[in-house]
Simulated assay, not measured.
Amino acid sequence: MDGDLGDFLRSRRARIQPEEVGLPSYGRRRVPGLRREEVAQLAGVSVDYYIRLEQGRGPGGPSRTKSGGVSDTVLDAVARVLCLDETERAYLHAVARPRRPSGRPAAPRVRPGVQLLLDSMERTPAFVLDVRMDVLAWNALADAVFDYDRIAPDARNIPRHVFLDPASRTFYPDWPAVAVQCVAHLRVRAGHHQDDRRLTALVGELSLKSDDFRRLWADHPVRECAFGVKRIQHPVAGLLTFPYETMALPADPDQNLLVYTPEPASETTERLALLGSWTSASTVPEPTERA
Rank of each mutant, 00 (worst) to 15 (best):
S120V: 05
D252A: 11
R189W: 13
V45N: 03
D147N: 15
P253F: 01
A177W: 09
P125F: 05
D174Y: 06
I158A: 11
H185G: 03
E286Q: 15
V222S: 12
M133G: 01
M247H: 12
E263C: 08
R99A: 12
R64Q: 15
L9I: 15
T241K: 02
L141S: 03
L42G: 01
F242L: 03
G44L: 05
P101N: 10
R100V: 05
D48Y: 04
Q194D: 13
R123F: 11
R215H: 09
R169S: 04
S46T: 14
A14S: 14
P235H: 00
L53Q: 03
G58A: 05
E19H: 15
P262N: 12
R198H: 15
D134L: 03
A140K: 07
D165Q: 14
T73E: 15
R132S: 00
T200M: 15
R150N: 13
Q194F: 08
V39W: 13
R15E: 14
A218K: 15
V284M: 02
L129W: 11
E54W: 03
S210G: 06
P262W: 09
L84F: 10
Q17H: 15
R100F: 07
Q17C: 05
P221V: 04
P24A: 02
D147P: 14
P62N: 10
L118P: 00
S280M: 12
D147C: 15
D219F: 06
L275H: 02
R36M: 02
G276M: 03
